[in-house]
C-alpha cells in the first residue's frame, strides 16, 4: 500500500520538473533586433562639438600668431583663410608687429551648423565684437571630407549697421546649398560672379541693379577714384585698373537662411594694376603692400593682389528684394612690380 505511491512519486516529480523546466527554458527571450531611431535631418555637429571645433581653430590661430609661424595654421585653416592668414603673418613678421593681423575673437554669438550628410560640409559662426569694438566676424569652416577636421575656410567683417538674416537654430541645423542651387533669386555662384562684375565695372555693370549699394563697393570705388586722380596727372600719365574675379578652385559656400534665402560666402581675387611714365616709381598704397614689397625696388608698375572675401545675402526666388552684402574682407596678399 505504501509501496505504490513510493513507486509513482518519482515519476510524478520527474514529470512536474520536466514541465516546469520546459516552461522556464521556453521563456528565455530571443535577443532583440536593432531598432534604431528613424533617420532624421539634424545638425551634423552638436553645439558642444561646434564650440569645440571653434576653440581648436582659435587655439591654432593664437599659437600661429604668437610664434609668427604660418605652418601651424595648416592644422585648422584651409583655402582662402589659410592664404590670407599666412600672408598676414608674413606681413606681421616683416613689419615687426601684428597690427594688421585680423583679430578674430574666440567668443561666438551664433552658430550655424549644416545638416548635410555629404561632404564637404560648411559650418558658420558669428563672433562677438572685437576688443577694439570692430564689427563681428563671420567665420566659415569647412570639412572637406569625412577624415578631415573642420578648418577655417574664410572670414569676413560684417558690414556695420547690417541686419543679418535669421538662421535656423543650431539644434536644428541649416542646410548647405549647392553653388547652382535654383531656389534663390540668383544662384550662389551667379551671385558671386555678378558681384565680382559689379566690383570690377562699378556703376557700368549690367548686374548693378541686382545688388544693393554697399560699403565695399564704395570703398573700392573711392580708392580707385583716388588712384586714378593721382595717376591721371599729365606728368605721370599713369593708368589704374581694378579687376575682381571669383577665386579659382574655391567653390562658393552657401547656407540656407530661415526665410528660404541663402547666405553665400565666396573668395574673390582683386588685382590692381597701376602704371606710370618711365622713370616714375610707384609705391604700394597700403601698409601691407609696403611690407610685402619689402626691399624690392619700386618701379613704374605696380600690381597689388588682394584676397577678398564677401558674404552676400541672396533672397529666395521670387522675393522682391536685392542681393545684399553682409560683410567683406579686403586684404592685400601680394605685390608685384612687373
Amino acid at each position: 500500500m505504501t509501496a505504490r505511491p513510493a513507486r509513482r512519486t518519482p515519476a510524478a516529480v520527474a514529470a512536474g520538473a520536466l514541465t516546469l523546466a520546459l516552461a522556464l527554458t521556453g521563456c528565455a527571450a530571443e535577443p532583440p533586433a536593432p531598432n534604431p531611431d528613424p533617420s532624421a535631418s539634424g545638425p551634423v555637429l552638436s553645439e558642444d562639438q561646434d564650440t569645440h571645433v571653434l576653440g581648436e581653430v582659435n587655439a591654432v590661430l593664437q599659437a600661429a600668431s604668437e610664434s609668427n609661424d604660418p605652418t601651424k595654421l595648416e592644422a585648422r585653416l584651409t583655402g582662402p583663410a589659410l592664404a590670407i592668414r599666412t600672408s598676414q603673418l608674413e606681413v606681421a613678421k616683416a613689419r615687426g608687429n601684428a597690427d594688421l593681423v585680423t583679430d578674430i575673437p574666440g567668443e561666438y554669438q551664433q552658430l550655424i551648423v549644416p545638416t548635410n550628410d555629404t561632404w564637404p560640409r560648411t559650418s558658420f559662426a558669428i563672433t562677438v565684437q572685437t576688443e577694439e569694438l570692430q564689427t563681428p566676424r563671420l567665420l566659415a569652416l569647412e570639412q572637406a571630407s569625412p577624415r578631415d577636421p573642420y578648418r577655417l575656410w574664410g572670414w569676413v567683417q560684417l558690414a556695420s549697421g547690417i541686419t543679418m538674416p535669421a538662421f535656423a537654430d543650431a539644434e536644428l541645423g541649416s542646410e548647405n546649398l549647392a553653388a547652382d542651387d535654383d531656389s534663390l533669386l540668383v544662384s550662389p555662384q551667379d551671385a558671386v560672379n555678378q558681384y565680382a562684375d559689379v566690383l570690377t565695372t562699378g556703376s557700368g555693370s549690367a548686374f548693378k541693379d541686382t545688388f544693393e549699394d554697399d560699403a565695399f563697393r564704395q570703398l573700392l570705388g573711392s580708392f580707385a577714384q583716388t588712384q586714378k586722380e593721382t595717376l591721371d596727372q599729365p606728368n605721370v600719365d599713369g593708368t589704374y585698373t581694378l579687376e575682381v574675379t571669383p577665386t579659382k578652385d574655391q567653390p562658393v559656400k552657401a547656407v540656407r537662411t530661415a526665410d528660404g534665402g541663402a547666405m553665400v560666402m565666396a573668395a574673390l581675387t582683386a588685382t590692381e594694376t597701376m602704371t606710370a611714365v618711365e622713370g616714375a616709381t610707384l609705391t604700394p598704397p597700403t601698409r601691407s603692400g609696403k611690407a610685402l614689397l619689402g626691399d624690392a625696388e619700386p618701379t613704374n608698375k605696380l600690381v597689388d593682389g588682394y584676397s577678398d572675401m564677401v558674404a552676400l545675402y541672396v533672397p529666395p526666388k521670387g522675393a522682391d528684394a536685392k542681393v545684399k552684402l553682409l560683410g567683406y574682407s579686403h586684404i592685400q596678399t601680394s605685390v608685384s612690380t612687373e
Binding site: 500500500m1 505504501t2 505504490r4 505511491p5 509513482r8 512519486t9 510524478a12 516529480v13 512536474g16 520538473a17 516546469l20 523546466a21 522556464l24
Partner: peptide, 20 residues
C-alpha cells in the same frame, strides 16, 4: 490508499514547484 497517493504526489509536486 488512492488519497494517500494523491496527497503525497501533490505535496511533492508543490515542493518541486516552489523549489524551481
Amino acid at each position: 490508499m488512492l488519497r494517500k497517493l494523491l496527497g503525497t504526489v501533490l505535496i511533492v509536486l508543490g515542493l518541486v514547484a516552489a523549489g524551481l
